[in-house]
């Protein structure tokens, strides 16, 4: 059995229909549990209660970047192998990625005001994240603007390749330029300051919850796109007689 078999919409619908209830249940339990745990952690000695914002900001920012990377992979599969399900999965993921980017930007601004004394700074990471959000908007607009689905998938695939520069930049901008306000990675395997386990465990749980939420939404949204495509094809066949 090959992975490419699931590029067949019928097989994808069958498999996704079977796993969706389990993924949804896991997402609900992990996300709700992680968020309750994160909201109830004690105050940080430096950040005070604003540390609780981290449990939304970090997973949302992580997902904003990773969803774009997922879109890049599925767009490449479309461009190289012409599997329709992969193009539809990229389209389905974009609104989720855009919402994650907004959450990361808003929570970052709300945290930054009391901690940095400013809502916004043209810092490399913040700026590249804002550009990533604009790419998400452009990507969705391009899908909506082009009538032919294959042409739309081609052009959005190319846009996704270009936007990947900003997705990677927003991840590594802190390492490239040191003049920004934004601190380095919250979680790192490198030696140095480590986040206390009081915060890291609920943070890992929230990250898992955000990932599972994305997976559940991606499955539902991809199934929706496949149904829409099927409906359009059947209606077109009826019109042709």
């Amino acid at each position: 059995m090959s992975l490419w078999e699931y590029a067949n919409p019928v097989k994808f619908m069958r498999l996704s229909g079977a796993v969706l209830p389990w993924v949804t249940a896991a997402a609900a339990v992990t996300l709700v549990g992680g968020l309750i745990w994160g909201f109830s952690v004690p105050e940080d000695y430096k950040q005070g209660a604003t540390v609780k914002i981290m449990f939304l900001h970090v997973p949302a920012a992580m997902m904003a970047i990773n969803i774009w990377v997922m879109m890049l992979v599925t767009s490449l599969i479309w461009l190289i192998r012409r599997h329709h399900v992969s193009a539809l999965a990229a389209r389905a993921a974009a609104p989720v990625g855009a919402v994650m980017t907004v959450i990361a930007l808003v929570t970052g601004a709300v945290w930054g005001q009391p901690m940095w004394g400013t809502w916004w700074e043209w810092d490399p990471r913040l700026t590249s994240f804002l550009i990533l959000f604009l790419f998400y908007l452009g990507y969705m607009a391009l899908w909506a603007a082009i009538e032919n689905p294959d042409s739309a998938a081609d052009l959005t695939g190319v846009l996704c390749l270009v936007g990947s520069v900003f997705a990677l930049l927003s991840r590594y901008a802190v390492n490239f330029w040191n003049q920004g306000l934004h601190q380095g990675a919250t979680i790192s395997v490198a030696p140095g300051d480590r986040i206390s386990s009081v915060y890291s465990y609920p943070l890992y749980t929230c990250m898992a919850g955000f990932f599972l939420l994305f997976l559940a939404l991606l499955l539902v949204r991809t199934r929706t796109e496949i149904r829409r495509r099927r409906t359009a094809a059947l209606l077109a066949r009826e019109v042709r007689g």
């Binding site: 105050e43 005070g48 209660a49 914002i53 808003v106 929570t107 709300v110």
Partner: peptide
Amino acid sequence: ELGKYAVPVLSAWAIS
């Protein structure tokens, strides 16, 4: 207890 940061914490959580 959210102390003096109640407004930013609650608004960030509510919006998200």
